[in-house]
């Protein structure tokens, strides 16, 4: 976004401006409401929810639903709460994000600074992989994970997420390194630096922003994934999203809405946190998703 253009050429009158603000505020309400209500109702006792008004603030503040969602709620067969699944997600997300980002950085470096015949074609193949409907790989992936002894395991999920995130990370780094001056690489070559040294000493030190973009994008996507988790995980490797769905959809017993909400917020918390801390980069990541970056 260009910084210099503070003065807009478009002028608007008073009435129009009031209408503008009104519409914008209405939409802000639309976006905030569902989540806000979820937060409010997660600290209400169940009776207040089923009997009362969802917009009303709690009369009895209680954090029991949160504690229950985290530690004791019945998910699957055991009353473990979401806690173990939260750690499953962490154990899956961290290596998957790290590996796919490192590979993406190297790929982007090769594809922009060490070009060779058919490199655009190869990039095209990688990029296309971002957009395939994952349903097409579900059956063979289940087979391969089974054959490799990775079925239902966290390393299996890491592999899956690395493979299908690679296209995006490569795209990010390629777009970023594309505008990194090639003359610098040439100067370093004349100075006698080799492939890895140029990467390590020249490109990597100025890759901070794009590393953040890539990490945030991968983190959000992998954390929020449901399809792969639901398809390839076992009870001891299920990620947070799958556990949350099991919690919410469980048909046994009373529906404890407040616990569901607390669980949903718990599942959303890491990505929301990332978004609050590094929202700027998050937007950039989304933008770069539109290929051009």
């Amino acid at each position: 976004m260009s910084a210099g253009s503070t003065d807009t050429a478009v002028r608007t009158g008073r009435i129009t401006r009031t209408a503008l603000y009104l519409v914008l505020l209405l939409f802000a309400l639309f976006y905030l409401l569902p989540f806000a209500i979820m937060v409010i109702n997660s600290v209400k006792p169940l009776t207040e929810i089923t009997g009362g008004n969802m917009m009303a603030l709690p009369q009895d503040w209680t954090f029991d639903p949160w504690v229950k969602a985290w530690a004791t709620a019945q998910i699957g067969v055991d009353p473990t709460g979401l806690k173990p699944y939260f750690w499953n997600s962490i154990k899956m997300v961290v290596p998957a994000v790290a590996i796919s980002t490192i590979l993406g950085a190297l790929n982007g470096y090769v594809l922009t600074k060490w070009r060779f015949k058919y490199d655009t074609l190869i990039f095209g193949f990688m990029l296309f992989a971002c957009f395939i409907p994952f349903q097409i790989v579900l059956i063979p992936m289940a087979r391969i994970l089974g054959l490799a002894g990775l079925a239902g395991s966290t390393p299996g999920l890491v592999l899956v997420h690395v493979v299908y995130g690679l296209g995006f990370t490569t795209l990010y780094f390629k777009n970023y390194y594309q505008v990194f001056p090639t003359e610098l690489v040439r100067a370093a070559q004349i100075d006698g630096a080799g492939f890895f040294r140029i990467f390590w000493r020249l490109l990597l030190p100025s890759s901070g922003p794009i590393i953040v973009v890539s990490v945030i994008w991968q983190f959000t996507n992998i954390w929020n994934d449901f399809l792969f988790g639901a398809s390839f995980a076992d009870f001891d490797s299920q990620p947070m999203t799958v556990a949350l769905n099991n919690l919410v959809q469980s048909s046994t017993g009373v529906k404890e809405y407040n616990v569901h909400f607390a669980g949903a917020i718990l599942a959303a918390l890491p990505t929301l946190l990332v978004y609050i801390v590094a929202g700027r980069y998050f937007v950039r990541g989304l933008m770069a998703g539109s290929v051009k970056g």
Binding site: P34, M54, F226, T241, L244, V248, Y257, A264, L272, F282
Partner: peptide
Amino acid sequence: PIFLYPMALSFIVTGTAWKWFLDPGIG
């Protein structure tokens, strides 16, 4: 950021919130 934050959420979370919000008996 208010307009954009839902993008950071999992569809499962979005689904959970709206499912209940739209439930005639309680929402």
